[in-house]
Computed example of a mutant assay.
Amino acid sequence: MPRIVDHDERRNRIARAFQRLLAAEGFAAVSFSRVAAEAGVSVGLIQHYFTGKDALLRFAYDDAGCRMSERVRVRVRAGEAAGLPIARVLLDSLVELLPLDQERDLEYRVRQHLQAQALHHGGLAEVARRAGGDILRHVTTVIEHGKECGEVDPGVDAVLAARTILATVQGLADQVALSGADAFPARDALGRVIGTVFTGGGGVPDR
């Protein structure tokens, strides 16, 4: 019988190897031969699935994003099941974007490399814009929900507030990546900014 090949498993194995090298060495230093050695496959197999490093970066970015999104969904479901305030659920979910452990640090570095390459590559720029638009819409929707539930003042511009919160997330993520997860209380800092928007639900979200 012919051997059944799991193409998804192969792509994911290659992507995870690429992510590890990308996080450790940077985009310019990573070659298909380095990825092949890390993944335990041939260069030819990588070329079979990916036309170049940009295509591999896009797939690796989507893979990392899917893992992050799943953790966010778990956080949201848990918060809703526990009856937590919307502000607290938002805080818990956005903390998943901060590089506070090895997995989240790897995902942060993959995002940063895609953003950097997107400045010079139209296809990658579209991927970055789409991802940014998705998270902006998510946070905006949460803020609108907060208005309906009395946690956010009705006069708040939800889109502007969402952009402010996400800009804070990005700035904190950069600081954590450079200074280390224990350098300062990033979660508390983010909670204070969210608390300036969600003023009707008890102020700054608890830890």
Score class of each variant (00 low, 15 high):
residue 84 L to E: 09
residue 85 P to R: 07
residue 49 Y to A: 10
residue 160 L to P: 09
residue 152 V to N: 05
residue 147 K to C: 05
residue 196 T to S: 10
residue 5 V to W: 10
residue 137 R to W: 11
residue 81 A to D: 11
residue 147 K to Y: 06
residue 20 R to T: 05
residue 15 A to V: 09
residue 80 E to V: 12
residue 189 A to H: 06
residue 68 M to P: 02
residue 141 T to P: 02
residue 112 Q to T: 05
residue 12 N to V: 14
residue 174 D to I: 06
residue 9 E to L: 07
residue 204 V to H: 15
residue 143 I to Y: 02
residue 82 A to T: 09
residue 108 Y to T: 00
residue 33 S to P: 07
residue 83 G to N: 01
residue 195 G to K: 07
residue 38 E to M: 13
residue 43 V to S: 03
residue 53 K to G: 03
residue 125 A to E: 11
residue 122 G to N: 11
residue 107 E to K: 03
residue 131 A to D: 03
residue 118 A to W: 07
residue 53 K to L: 12
residue 129 R to A: 14
residue 114 L to R: 05
residue 187 R to S: 02
residue 161 A to N: 05
residue 195 G to Y: 05
residue 189 A to S: 05
residue 181 A to C: 08
residue 50 F to L: 09
residue 125 A to W: 09
residue 70 E to P: 08
residue 8 D to Y: 13
residue 67 R to C: 02
residue 63 D to G: 03
residue 114 L to F: 04
residue 196 T to Q: 06
residue 204 V to P: 04
residue 42 S to Y: 10
residue 24 A to K: 15
residue 108 Y to L: 00
residue 64 A to G: 05
residue 38 E to N: 13
residue 142 V to A: 10
residue 28 A to M: 14
residue 179 S to N: 11
residue 189 A to Y: 01
residue 145 H to E: 13
residue 65 G to D: 02
residue 113 H to L: 01
residue 99 P to L: 02
residue 69 S to A: 13
residue 94 L to Q: 02
residue 30 V to T: 10
residue 51 T to A: 15
residue 197 V to I: 12
residue 55 A to Y: 10
residue 188 D to K: 10
residue 33 S to K: 15
residue 115 Q to H: 15
residue 205 P to H: 04
residue 53 K to V: 09
residue 138 H to L: 14
residue 60 A to E: 06
residue 37 A to K: 15
residue 140 T to P: 02
residue 132 G to F: 04
residue 131 A to V: 06
residue 165 I to K: 06
residue 164 T to L: 11
residue 178 L to C: 06
residue 169 V to N: 12
residue 110 V to L: 00
residue 75 R to M: 04
residue 47 Q to M: 11
residue 150 G to M: 08
residue 96 E to V: 08
residue 75 R to I: 00
residue 128 A to Y: 11
residue 59 F to Q: 03
residue 93 S to Y: 00
residue 113 H to M: 13
residue 55 A to K: 14
residue 126 E to Q: 11
residue 197 V to M: 03
residue 1 M to P: 14
residue 122 G to C: 04
residue 113 H to V: 14
residue 3 R to K: 15
residue 61 Y to P: 06
residue 144 E to P: 01
residue 157 D to H: 06
residue 156 V to E: 03
residue 160 L to Y: 12
residue 186 A to P: 11
residue 172 L to G: 08
residue 198 F to H: 00
residue 21 L to V: 04
residue 83 G to S: 06
residue 44 G to Y: 09
residue 93 S to I: 00
residue 115 Q to D: 12
residue 103 E to N: 00
residue 119 L to H: 11
residue 183 A to P: 03
residue 45 L to V: 09
residue 8 D to S: 07
residue 63 D to V: 13
residue 155 G to P: 12
residue 170 Q to M: 14
residue 92 D to Y: 01
residue 153 D to M: 06
residue 199 T to P: 00
residue 148 E to V: 08
residue 35 V to N: 10
residue 189 A to M: 09
residue 22 L to I: 14
residue 109 R to K: 15
residue 126 E to M: 12
residue 30 V to Q: 05
residue 119 L to M: 06
residue 132 G to T: 02
residue 158 A to K: 07
residue 106 L to Y: 00
residue 194 I to Q: 01
